[in-house]
Amino acid sequence: MLKIEGLVTGYGSIKALKGIDLEVPAGSIVSLIGANGAGKTTAMKSLSGLLKPESGRIIYKGKQIQGLAPHKIVSLGISLVPEGRNILSQMTILENLEMGAYQRKDGQVAADLRSVFNRFPVLEERKNQLGGTLSGGQQQMLAIGRAMMAKPDLLLLDEPSMGLAPMVVADIFKVIKEINQEGATVLLVEQNVRQALKIAHYAYVLETGKIVYNGTAEEVAANPRVKEAYLGGSKTTV
């Protein structure tokens, strides 16, 4: 469904991505893991149109999409849940969700709102409160719910577990798995490697702008270097 070839993206003279190749088969969960500053967010921003790649290609459903503006990429069926969630804090929870469906013209928006509320009842209870009043975990639910309102074929998630309590993290991963089972393809950026590899089918390891290792989630989890660097002391990643 998505294929990245030789993608280079930089900030001025700093190249944060030094030519990466990555493939996301339709229906799968692919996890992109790596340490702080590896370039994961840069990759997500390049995919969603926030950053213009310097070279390389992003092919989605057979079409080249690199360099398109973010709203054009949304209209192709790709939604990003950005790092830090970016909830519209001055708008209500309901308005945040409505904004998620901004480009939709089909008649299914109400039904999808219903299913977001069913999945996250707390959002319905608080639908008329401002986004800024939610806790971190609730904001992540809202961010995911908002992305689902666009009915994306490909969901990009940038560190959805960041800063959340372990219980909430487990919930979020469960929801990601469900969303995938309901048909969305998922590209998941995580530092919570253990959990990410549990739900992913394939994984790519990114180090300072380069893919150093990739394979099925089991292969990656069994790789000695990955074990040492990301799954090492069982307490560093839960």
């Binding site: 926030l50 503006a69 950005p82 970016n86 904004m99």
Partner: peptide, 19 residues
């Protein structure tokens, strides 16, 4: 609403599909 979203965070609005 799109205008308010853009006013609050232009990048987020763009990511939600607002031109």
């Amino acid at each position: 609403k799109a205008l308010r979203a853009t006013a609050e965070n232009i990048e987020t609005a763009n990511l939600l599909g607002v031109n």
